[in-house]
């Protein structure tokens, strides 16, 4: 090659490299990820799309855990049922009291106090019905004390006829309402 031509080639190369590019400036198109390929097609970027939240973990505080524990034990406890106008414990209810005594003395229940709640059917009226509910609660409390539940852990209250679990006016319903149930308190 003629040595005289070499500077000409270099000049042409450099001039070509510095030629102006045709750049388009405009706003990005919303909702689309455009990638310009040489073929001119639009490619949808899928990475990171459609990932589900499988579990949202939140730190539970100690109170919430205790509350859940108490509710679970309450659900396990068995109601004690009574005869019409009576507050002595029926023989068929003794096994249920045995069960409740064991439950309340269980390791996970021992830290809680127990509110023993007496309830009546709709047939009593006025103060007497509240007193009847109270005596039912006291009978159950006394029976639990005999079976080893600490007296200090238990308080009693009567809801009279104010807290029915069954609202129909039928003998079956009234029998369900003549009951003692339990609420745990911290």
């Amino acid at each position: 090659m003629n040595k005289k031509l070499i500077p000409i080639f270099i000049a042409v190369f450099l001039l070509g490299g510095c030629a102006k590019k045709n750049v388009q400036v405009g706003p990005p198109v919303r909702g689309e990820t455009r990638s310009t390929s040489y073929s001119g097609e639009v490619e949808r970027v899928k990475e990171g799309e459609g990932i589900q939240t499988i579990q949202e973990m939140r730190e539970k505080d100690a109170d919430e855990i205790k509350l859940e524990q108490m509710k679970r034990i309450e659900r396990e406890a068995k109601e004690i049922y009574f005869d019409f106008d009576k507050y002595d414990i029926r023989p068929d209810q003794e096994p249920r009291i045995e069960y409740d005594a064991k439950l309340f003395n269980r390791k996970d229940a021992r830290e809680f106090n127990i509110r023993v709640e007496g309830n009546c059917d709709e047939w009593g009226t006025d103060e007497y019905n509240y007193a009847l509910g109270l005596k039912r609660a006291k009978s159950v409390r006394d029976a639990l004390i005999v079976r080893g539940v600490s007296a200090e852990r238990m308080s009693i209250i009567s809801y009279g006829e104010s807290n029915p679990v069954c609202m129909d006016h039928t003998p079956e319903c009234w029998a369900k309402n003549r009951r003692v149930e339990f609420e745990l308190i911290p």
Partner: peptide, 8 residues
């Protein structure tokens, strides 16, 4: 009062 309290 414990248990019950009514003004009669």
């Amino acid at each position: 009062s414990e248990g019950m309290l009514v003004c009669s």
